[in-house]
């Protein structure tokens, strides 16, 4: 797990109040007791701010697992880095 993923997991864990050891990539977000829509929006906003990204609306509500969310954030960060390099 790289630094970015660690930070994503930290934000998810802190916001949804899940102990770090319990957050697995295949953990369905809807299965987390505190993961109602407003809390998930808070996660999205914090991650966007932390990495200066914009996560699309459809992803905000469509992400199924913590791993998918981490993957999406890394992909968006890579796209932004590529765009900056051009």
């Amino acid at each position: 797990m790289n630094d970015m993923s660690r930070e994503v997991y930290r934000i998810v864990g802190e916001t949804l109040r899940v102990p770090p050891g319990e957050l697995r990539p295949d953990l369905p977000i809807r299965a987390i007791p505190n993961a109602e829509s407003i809390k998930m929006l808070t996660v999205i906003l914090k991650v966007e701010k932390q990495f200066d990204l914009e996560i699309p609306d459809e992803a905000t509500f469509g992400i199924e697992t913590v791993g998918q969310f981490d993957e999406l954030v890394r992909m968006l960060a890579a796209e932004r880095a590529a765009a900056t390099a051009r």
Binding site: S37, I38, L41, T42, D57, E58, T60, F61, G62
Partner: peptide
Amino acid sequence: QMAYVWLADRR
């Protein structure tokens, strides 16, 4: 926040 969640998500 509530407005965003209710208006943006029509999946």
